[in-house]
């Protein structure tokens, strides 16, 4: 493989309360015979088994270069903190392939790989993955969205949006390069309200699964930051009490602030990727500043362990969305 491309879609689970580990596992059971990886430390995280989807179509290219490829895209879903759901579709392309399509069994034994018919126009396809697929072209975003819709069709304990929050898309491409000694995040761009793009360069020993896991982690933390920025913009200081800012900020403190843990399940070989983001724009710095701002403005009763007032205790029991 010479390049990997993917798209991650991230949104809040539409439930009043966070899902429990067992509920999350049921949601992500894409293949009954393969386990959902449920982890409780250092935070609650569940990852579905990867599911391959067969494709035989043109790869996306922004300049009209036509290249047909055959193989499989891996789609995978995850839930973090019982709160944030992500669907991911990704595939890797080989530098060249035969002139004709091979028997399907050949592609089935190489999950997450597409082979071009002929030579891969590497640069054009890399740009195409970031630009998204046109009509008839491979569109990883649609495959991810399809999985997200399928996961959310499962019965949920309740179905209500606790808060209007953004839904983000991260398109990414990673190129293996002979001269790359350490993995490098070349560019991370906020393209608009929803869309982000990332371009990575990798040494040859970077495992595709770990690269995809990094991109999902990046998408998750970008979503958290985007959500916090949106909440504060919607509820600026000095809001009249009837605007309900107190309730919203308290909900954010209860349900989202503890989810910030960049890189906790990251393959050590990819650690430099997060370091780059921490330097510029300073992801965690911004998060900590905003989180502190939210806490400072959150009405006190939510910090029930610091007070013995019965009223505060009641407020605590009524925490947004928790059943009594």
């Amino acid at each position: 493989m010479v390049l990997l491309g993917g798209e991650v879609r991230t949104r809040l689970l539409p439930t009043a309360r966070p899902l429990r580990a067992a509920e999350t596992a049921r949601l992500l059971e894409l293949r009954p015979d393969e386990p959902v990886h449920v982890s409780a430390r250092p935070n609650a995280h569940a990852l579905s088994p990867p599911r391959p989807v067969g494709v035989d179509c043109a790869l996306p290219t922004p300049d009209g270069t036509r290249v047909r490829a055959v193989g499989t895209v891996l789609s995978q879903a995850s839930v973090t903190g019982g709160r944030v759901v992500q669907a991911h579709a990704r595939t890797g392309a080989t530098a060249a392939g035969p002139d004709g399509r091979r028997p399907w069994g050949h592609y089935l034994t190489r999950p997450g790989v597409v082979e071009p018919l002929g030579k891969l126009p590497e640069g054009a396809v890399a740009r195409g993955f970031l630009a998204g697929g046109g009509p008839g072209e491979l569109d990883l975003g649609l495959i991810a969205q399809r999985l997200l819709t399928e996961v959310l069709r499962h019965p949920l304990p309740d179905r209500q949006e606790p808060l209007p929050t953004p839904r983000t898309r991260l398109r990414w491409v990673a190129l293996w390069a002979a001269d790359a000694e350490a993995p490098r995040l070349e560019r991370f761009t906020i393209e608009g309200d929803e869309l982000r793009t990332a371009r990575l360069r990798l040494p040859y020993d970077a495992p595709p699964d770990a690269v995809a896991a990094f991109c999902a982690d990046l998408a998750l933390h970008d979503w958290l930051l985007t959500t916090l920025i949106a909440v504060l913009e919607e509820h600026p200081p000095g809001d009249p009490p009837e605007a309900g800012s107190g309730r919203v900020l308290r909900w954010v403190v209860d349900q989202l602030l503890h989810l910030w843990m960049p890189g906790v399940r990251l393959d050590e070989r990819l650690a430099p990727l997060w370091h780059a983001l921490e330097r510029t724009p300073g992801f965690t710095r911004q998060w900590q500043a905003l989180a502190q701002h939210v806490r400072d403005r959150t009405p006190r009763p939510v910090r029930c362990r610091w007070t013995n007032e019965s009223e505060a205790g009641e407020a605590c029991g009524r925490r947004a969305g928790y059943p009594k």
Binding site: G54, D56, A89, G136, L142
Partner: peptide, 8 residues
Amino acid sequence: PPPGSNGV
């Protein structure tokens, strides 16, 4: 996938 399938 028959030729032309983009997985959707």
